Amino acid sequence: MGLYERWCESTKEKDKRKHYWTYVEKDGGRDEISGDLAETIRSHYDRLERIAEDVERLGYTVAAKILSEAMPQTAKGRSGDLGEILATELVEEDIGLRVPVRRLRYKDGRNMAMRGDDFIGAGYGGKDEKLWLLKGEAKSNKKLGKSTVNSARKVLDRDSGRCTPDSLLFVANRLLESNDPAENALGRDLRDEVGVKSLRADRIDHMLFTVSGNGPHASLREDLDAAGTNRDHYVVNIHVEDHQDFIAAMYQGAEDLGDA
């Protein structure tokens, strides 16, 4: 059972290619997934096997210090990062595309936001099983409002709705560095797409992902209603009432590797 299935009650509405998804925490859901979510957060900043190697060589306390150096220490930085992490997990759990590169591992500074698309889903689909992409923008706010939603939509619409070339090339090059032939093949297809731009709009889906303390603002529905019909649009809200306390607790758990 996936993270979201254990954590939240969901409502999913679909009108042709428009998807409106809302999630609310179940009673006891947070306790159910807190340990797994802490590990998931760690995995977005470093490989779990590398963290385990640090523990074996240096002990839990020093390994935790190393991991902490990769994680943001400001409330704003943690909020933004956790939005991207939760969005990535949702894409892989509920849409079936991969987000093949954990880009938070490559930040210039732990408290700095990364430039480019927040997350890119990739895979193969359709009758021809050819390249399929998802361009995503993630927002995490104590209080979500119309200006934030409008700002996210502008980002999704730029570059004619395509993944920005620098973001796509970043993902492609990381995959081409892998020793896995399947990763190399996907990386090559993504790199080719940067040059030839052959994908039609109907193979580049969009997701506007939000996590907020005030739940789904009316502007989310308005945004989806105004979206075009030439691609799949996913508009998502995760309602976490104690938004800031939740983020602080999840990062505290992620940084705590134990004391053995």
Results as ranks from 00 to 15, higher is better:
residue 206 H to E: 04
residue 184 N to A: 05
residue 192 D to K: 10
residue 188 R to L: 09
residue 13 E to N: 10
residue 24 V to W: 12
residue 33 I to F: 00
residue 238 I to K: 13
residue 247 I to N: 01
residue 63 A to R: 04
residue 239 H to G: 06
residue 158 R to K: 09
residue 26 K to L: 05
residue 75 A to C: 11
residue 58 L to N: 11
residue 246 F to D: 10
residue 128 D to C: 04
residue 130 K to S: 08
residue 222 E to N: 15
residue 11 T to A: 14
residue 243 H to R: 12
residue 91 V to R: 00
residue 13 E to S: 07
residue 112 M to K: 15
residue 94 D to R: 10
residue 145 G to W: 12
residue 105 R to P: 00
residue 36 D to V: 14
residue 49 E to W: 14
residue 112 M to D: 09
residue 97 L to K: 00
residue 147 S to I: 05
residue 260 A to P: 09
residue 150 N to M: 12
residue 64 A to H: 02
residue 149 V to T: 07
residue 209 F to I: 03
residue 139 K to D: 06
residue 176 L to M: 07
residue 22 T to Y: 07
residue 122 A to D: 00
residue 115 R to T: 14
residue 179 N to E: 07
residue 136 G to S: 07
residue 256 D to F: 06
residue 32 E to C: 11
residue 65 K to F: 12
residue 10 S to C: 06
residue 156 L to H: 06
residue 183 E to D: 14
residue 88 T to N: 05
residue 198 S to W: 09
residue 185 A to C: 02
residue 207 M to F: 06
residue 190 L to T: 10
residue 39 E to R: 02
residue 190 L to N: 01
residue 56 E to G: 14
residue 102 R to C: 10
residue 1 M to E: 07
residue 64 A to G: 01
residue 164 T to K: 06
residue 218 A to D: 15
residue 73 Q to D: 15
residue 227 A to D: 02
residue 83 G to Y: 08
residue 133 L to E: 00
residue 112 M to H: 15
residue 150 N to A: 11
residue 114 M to F: 15
residue 156 L to A: 04
residue 212 S to H: 02
residue 55 V to D: 06
residue 104 L to D: 08
residue 96 G to C: 06
residue 71 M to W: 15
residue 225 D to Q: 07
residue 249 A to S: 13
residue 171 V to Q: 07
residue 48 L to K: 03
residue 154 K to V: 08
residue 203 R to T: 13
residue 77 G to W: 03
residue 70 A to L: 12
residue 207 M to E: 06
residue 85 I to N: 04
residue 244 Q to P: 05
residue 191 R to W: 08
residue 202 D to M: 01
residue 72 P to D: 07
residue 75 A to N: 13
residue 127 K to Y: 12
residue 232 D to A: 13
residue 81 D to A: 08
residue 55 V to F: 03
residue 204 I to W: 00
residue 133 L to V: 04
residue 156 L to G: 08
residue 126 G to Q: 02
residue 23 Y to K: 11
residue 141 N to G: 09
residue 242 D to S: 09
residue 197 K to G: 04
residue 258 G to E: 00
residue 130 K to A: 06
residue 109 G to D: 09
residue 106 Y to I: 05
residue 123 G to D: 00
residue 238 I to E: 13
residue 38 A to Y: 10
residue 8 C to Y: 09
residue 45 Y to F: 10
residue 43 S to R: 01
residue 197 K to P: 03
residue 235 V to Y: 09
residue 253 G to W: 10
residue 246 F to P: 04
residue 61 T to G: 10
residue 243 H to L: 13
residue 129 E to P: 14
residue 93 E to D: 03
residue 70 A to K: 12
residue 30 R to K: 13
residue 222 E to S: 05
residue 213 G to M: 09
residue 71 M to K: 04
residue 112 M to V: 15
residue 202 D to F: 03
residue 111 N to R: 01
residue 104 L to K: 11
residue 167 S to C: 14
residue 141 N to I: 13
residue 108 D to P: 13
residue 255 E to S: 09
residue 166 D to Q: 11
residue 227 A to W: 00
residue 142 K to G: 12
residue 28 G to C: 02
residue 48 L to P: 09
residue 229 T to P: 11
residue 236 V to C: 02
residue 138 A to Y: 05
